[in-house]
């Protein structure tokens, strides 16, 4: 791959990750169409106005890259063949830190959101108990 194209792709991946840390990025080069295909999921992020805005900046920048290749961003359900793609980035998995103030205060960091579950949540909020049970089940406690 040409150095300028590699540099562009690295910058593009970094810009996407900086702005949308919750996405998964996959990539492949289609030899037949000479196209760099970048798949971004979930679709709800790809379909957002803010992603469209960043995507426009990337396309405008691509126009200045000296290459005969093409570049484009797709998401789930694309008409483009998205088999055999290489995973470039996926978000950091959920981690738990257990507060020392109480054995029932549990901070759950899910991607960039931090949720605190407290003792009263476990008895009245069945969804919290479900999340806690699943975290224990997968052995992700710190």
């Amino acid at each position: 791959m040409e150095a300028t194209v590699q540099r562009f792709l690295n910058q593009a991946f970094n810009q996407i990750i900086q702005k949308f840390p919750n996405v998964t990025i996959e990539y492949k080069f289609s030899e037949l169409s000479k196209s760099h295909i970048v798949k971004v999921t979930p679709a709800k992020i790809y379909d957002s106005e803010s992603f469209l805005d960043l995507e426009g900046d990337l396309y405008k920048a691509w126009l200045n890259v000296e290459t005969d290749d093409d570049f484009g961003l797709v998401t789930d359900g694309t008409i483009v063949d998205d088999s055999n793609m290489e995973e470039i980035y996926s978000p950091t998995p959920c981690k738990i830190t257990i507060s020392s103030t109480s054995s029932y205060d549990i901070d759950v960091e899910i991607f960039t959101e931090r949720i605190r579950f407290q003792e009263q949540d476990f008895e009245t909020n069945s969804e919290s108990v479900f999340v806690l049970d699943n975290i224990r089940k997968y052995g992700m406690a710190a």
Binding site: I37, D70, G72, T78, I79
Partner: peptide, 12 residues
Amino acid sequence: RAIFALKVARKD
């Protein structure tokens, strides 16, 4: 977005 997807799909 549209023409990129169609261009790649057309080649395939």
